[in-house]
Amino acid sequence: MAVLNQNMYERELTRDELMALRNRRTAVTVFQISWIMVFVCLIVVNLQIRSNSPSWPPPGVQGLEPILPTVATLGLLMSALLARNGLKAIGVGRQSAFASNWRAALVLGGAFVAIMAYEWTTVQFSGQFSSIFRVMVAYHAVHAVVIGYVMWRVYRTAQAGGYTVQRHWPVEGAAKLWYFVVVAWVMFYVVLYIL
């Protein structure tokens, strides 16, 4: 049991609860490593499509405007930090600090999705260039929305006093899934706007 990644409060959990916690942590890690591969796959697709074109963006196609998406990306990074602060806060029983951090993370996440939705609808149609852009942004947004919804549910449960210092796995799980959303996006951002 020494391998358990436990803080001092988790010592109060029963053996079965500890095992369950440990299993969930491993599962989320494996899930993150696994599912990020879909995003890697779409990046590979993007790169292969690019390599078929004499230039990127293809001749005559207007490139992407990076300013708004860059702001959105910075906001998203910030939201990961806030989610992390929220998770830490609930681990030491500071419910109100949790709530304010988590709320801010949700707002930033929502703003990110809104900005990218705007970019998605306004990108000029241009065959492969806009197709792969739209697929990547939409594919990511689906994850952001679903996991954002999970964060929202966790927030509501926390408001109702559903989590304690010892038992708040859903907060940890939701935060880790949100990190996943952020990391996946940063990879996409680099490919779409920088490379």
């Binding site: 494996v30 696994s34 599912w35 990020i36 591969m37 879909v38 890697v40 796959c41 697709v45 697929v135």
Partner: peptide
């Protein structure tokens, strides 16, 4: 399975 199958998911989506 966990490392490769997501590529199938990507291909099928396209």
């Amino acid at each position: 399975i966990v490392m490769a199958t997501p590529f199938l998911a990507g291909a099928l989506t396209l």
